[in-house]
Design a binder for these strands. Structure first.
Lengths: 193, 193
DNA sequence: TATTGTATGCTAACGCCGTTAGTTTGTCAA
DNA sequence: TTGACAAACTAACGGCGTTAGCATACAATA
């Protein structure tokens, strides 16, 4: 009963904390309610559903990732910008794996809000590529390639798929980024031809 | 009661069918039991747990993917082998997305059986790269890069993350594969230097 | 052929989960 | 002071995986 000034932000914030510390897998509304000294049913005064909460956390994650990426490329150009961007992405995935996972469980189909979130995902890499002489169409493709490499690498490492061989994972990561930069340079040549 | 000759294979097979047609998300032991005309509790005469069933389906998926990949590279070399391998991988991910998802939810940490499954994942790409003059260590890294690109691309496309721009996703895919081949050629040069 | 053991089915139940309906109560504005 | 509304509550529903304990069909053995 003892009414506390529970904000919507408090709830999302607590949920994020719980997911980061206990893992996305074991997160539940009932535990969230418990942590807030509330019954699970009372949560529905603040959220519409578990899915909606999930989605909001996803937006938070995307905005955090974007922030880190934009900070990383500030004042940098070309390969230096790309490497710095990749590093920021990689670090985010490694340091906040549970929050990172939420991003991809987002149903990207739905509504308009998600469309702007889609823009947030794309913007940093598009900016980082600005120093290369590429056509707009090339950039649209390359943006996808970059995100594929980064996401693929992070999620496979997280899933433990990189334990097969006794070579340093960070070295593999650097090679992946170098591969993308090679592709950038190659595309640039093609655009100028 | 009417005892039917329920095989372990029957159960896994039915589970796979259900996951492919209804989606991994909506799969449950109770529905599986229903489809087999059995009560959920009776399933435990055949499986140890939901997790174990999940894991076995993951092994199946890995072996299917491996089979498709090995068939794709048979009699091919160098870039042709790589492209063909990538196509087989891509096709698998697009045609059987739900089964593909099971692979990555596998906990790669655990036991020995998973270690051999890890080998199954790695073998096709290692074979496909055999035509390039690379050091063993280079191959270990490049194998990770390849799988990152492929998995990243497939899972992001599946998640709907590639709708931002009106450019063909298959074109983006080809660019990604071309990028990997560039990296292969570049690594080859370095190895020879 | 009769018996016995095991594999395979059953029911009932537990403790989770998200969610809804209906009710009470604290708080703030008129 | 009163009335309205927001925010808590309790109770319940149907879902989930899972366990315990019981019944039965079938196969091997005596």
């Amino acid at each position: 009963m003892a009414r506390q000034g529970l904000t919507h932000a408090d709830i999302i914030g607590t949920a994020i904390e719980m997911i980061e510390s206990e893992g996305l897998h074991s997160f539940s509304l009932r535990e969230l309610a418990g942590r807030l000294h509330i019954k699970a049913a009372s949560l529905y005064n603040h959220i519409r559903s578990s899915d909606e909460l999930h989605t909001e956390i996803g937006y938070y994650a995307i905005s955090e990732l974007k922030k880190a990426q934009l900070a990383a490329i500030a004042g940098k150009e070309r390969s230096e910008a790309i490497e710095s961007l990749a590093d920021a992405y990689y670090r985010f995935g490694k340091e906040r794996p549970e929050i990172y996972k939420v991003i991809l469980s987002l149903p990207m189909v739905k509504n308009d809000a998600i469309h702007s979130a889609g823009f947030d995902i794309v913007e940093p890499i598009m900016t980082a590529m600005a120093g290369y002489h590429l056509t707009r169409e090339q950039m649209m493709h390359l943006q996808r390639v970059f995100r594929s490499i980064m996401h693929g690498f992070i999620s496979q490492e997280e899933a433990g798929c990189f334990r097969q061989f006794p070579v340093d994972v960070v070295d593999s990561y650097r090679m992946a980024v170098r591969g993308f930069i090679l592709l950038l340079e190659n595309s640039e040549k093609e655009a100028q031809a």
